[in-house]
Simulated scan of single mutants.
Amino acid sequence: MSDNYKKSGVDIHKGYEVVEWIKKIVAQKFDTKLSNNIGSFGCIFDLSSLNYQKPVLVSGTDGVGTKLLLAIEANQHKTIGIDLVAMCVNDILTLGAKPLYFLDYIAVEKINLEIITDIITGIVDGCIQSNCTLLGGETAEMKDMYIKNHYDLAGFITGVVEKDKLIDYKKNVKENNKIIAINSSGIHSNGYSLVRKIFFKDHNYNYDHKFEELETNLITELLKPTKIYVDIISELQNQNFKINAMANITGGGFIENIPRVIPNGLSAKINKTKIKSQNIFKLMQRLGNISEDEMYNVFNMGVGFIIIADNEEAKKIANFINGFKDYKANIIGEIINNSKTKIELIND
């Protein structure tokens, strides 16, 4: 075969190596009775064996944003795939869906088998944490599109829920419902343009800088993978707790995400004194001289996921979460009548 394509920047043989390696790891890690499609034109998933009566499919897609730049510049790629899965999976959980399968898209300047292996290993880890399969994907080598050694990631998740168990916040959320916060693992994967500005543009810290406030060096803290909430949400569903609504605290922080599950005429009243923010958020606010309002509009502030439930049920849910693995939860607010704003942050 002619080397002209390779000279133009595309090494198809390395692409074949990537596909073969992914086939092997998928066969080792996932149930191929439900799916076995790596390398095919299309991806097949057998839904019939799962015994749903009226299944509704729920899909989502996302990326990792400029957190990728930190992984690339620090040459640490092993957990960025977890972030990719988490960003997609946590969104569909809010509708009551259980993840079924994940697809990835990896676009690179040049295929580096070691880096691709690290990325895929993280994606596989994220899928295992999410109890879903890696169904397929695409790896594209585009030398003219990307800076040397750079890459981009995108993910796509599909989950399933029984039609009568879809979580409909418009019907469920009522006045006096309580708002439960579940802890995040850190910054997760949002706000990294500001994160990078604070630490590396405005202050020029090294990646291995150690702050007294942090338990690890800076880059380890910043690359902590996004927490995946599948295990705790699935367990709450299995225990038949009544959940009125859920919100993933993703891009836009509290200010943009909680209102997405608040019906018209109601508002989420959040008591900020009840929120247990990790030190990384306090550090960024101090170094960046950022207002508290902006912090809550950019970052998760230590809360990765929100559940809204009736008063007594909320107490039971919070107690259950606090007894499950390393999760921490507490009630941080309530739903009130208010047609002027969907969210109100107070210090009380």
Rank of each mutant, 00 (worst) to 15 (best):
M295C: 08
I180F: 01
A154E: 06
G96W: 02
P55N: 02
G136Y: 12
V85S: 01
N217V: 09
Y205H: 13
N319C: 06
T66W: 05
D11A: 13
Y5F: 11
N248R: 05
Y52H: 15
D348L: 10
Q28H: 14
V58A: 13
Y105A: 13
I82M: 07
N183R: 04
L93A: 02
S59T: 14
T273M: 14
D118W: 04
E313I: 04
L135P: 06
K29E: 15
E292H: 13
Y5Q: 12
F281L: 04
N36L: 00
V195G: 10
E344L: 10
Y105Q: 15
R286A: 12
E73K: 07
I232Q: 04
G63D: 06
A154P: 00
D125A: 08
I249S: 05
N319R: 11
E17L: 08
D152Y: 11
F241V: 11
Y105H: 15
A86W: 02
E256L: 15
K174V: 09
G81Y: 08
G122D: 09
N238G: 06
Q285E: 14
G126R: 01
F281I: 02
S48P: 00
Y192A: 13
N217Q: 11
D118P: 01
Y101S: 00
N190V: 14
E20T: 06
P263A: 15
V58F: 08
I228K: 02
L223T: 01
L70W: 11
S185K: 03
T32Q: 03
H150W: 10
A181Y: 01
F156W: 12
I167N: 09
L214D: 02
R286D: 12
P259W: 14
I38E: 03
Y327E: 02
V85R: 00
N338A: 11
S2H: 11
V230K: 00
G288C: 12
A27F: 06
I219F: 11
F281T: 01
S189K: 03
G333V: 00
G155R: 08
D11W: 07
K7M: 07
Q129G: 07
R196T: 09
D202W: 08
I243Y: 05
F241P: 11
A181R: 00
